[in-house]
Amino acid sequence: MAVVFERTKGLTPISTHYCPGCTHGIIHRLTAEAMEELGVLDQAIGVAPVGCSVLAYKYFNCDMHEAAHGRAPAVATGIKRVLPDKFVFTYQGDGDLASIGTAEIVHAAHRSENISVVFVNNAIYGMTGGQMAPTTLAGQRTTTSPLGRDPAHAGYPIRISEMLATIPGATFIERVAVDSPANVRKAKRAIKRAFEIQLEGKGFSLVEVLSTCPTNWGIEPPNALKWLKENMIPYYPLGNFRDATKEEVSDGQ
């Protein structure tokens, strides 16, 4: 008899504060398993964001640092430059990375800081009560867009991965989802690859993970996964947007 699935050592044995069915738990697991499999838990320093995952420092079984809202890439930059032998990652939501932290993530990618970013996009501000985020879909109802997001008034949702992929310094940019077991397994491979790129010293890597917010979407957890698949994936297509390690010829040649 062999155990084929058990709790990773990369997470502390604490029960998370996340709502039932919140896919943060899955993405925490994938991040922790990737670190465990790469053998970097002892040398890892994570940077937690502001948002629902603000308490991520309680859950990851490695050294963690808290950052001001949106500033995780700047804090990670400092840690990595002072301690280049450490493995440094940030774990950020869309309210953190895609709005108040846009400057930090763009410039961290532009400088090709040798850090890894796990970007969780659930198209809403979760912790503060379900307000419209930059990533909220057109027509999506939130507490601050009760009639649905009107692009004429609030603009169209921002596609962070596509934007960052245009930056030469962004070494690895991929978007994945956690709406099915197959996609969760693909997400794990992407996160692991992003972490390997840092360990190889090849620069900035980011994995955008499409996630759910059953509580603020007002949808039961299994149906939230279906909503993600039917509404988010068409606007936020999955796939690799940049892998400079595979590009034989550099940009512009």
Binding site: M1, F5, Y18, I26
Partner: peptide, 17 residues
Amino acid sequence: TNCATMCPDLVIVVERL
């Protein structure tokens, strides 16, 4: 292991007999 793959709270252990 599909169930454990989707469990956000890691409450599932799967063994192969």
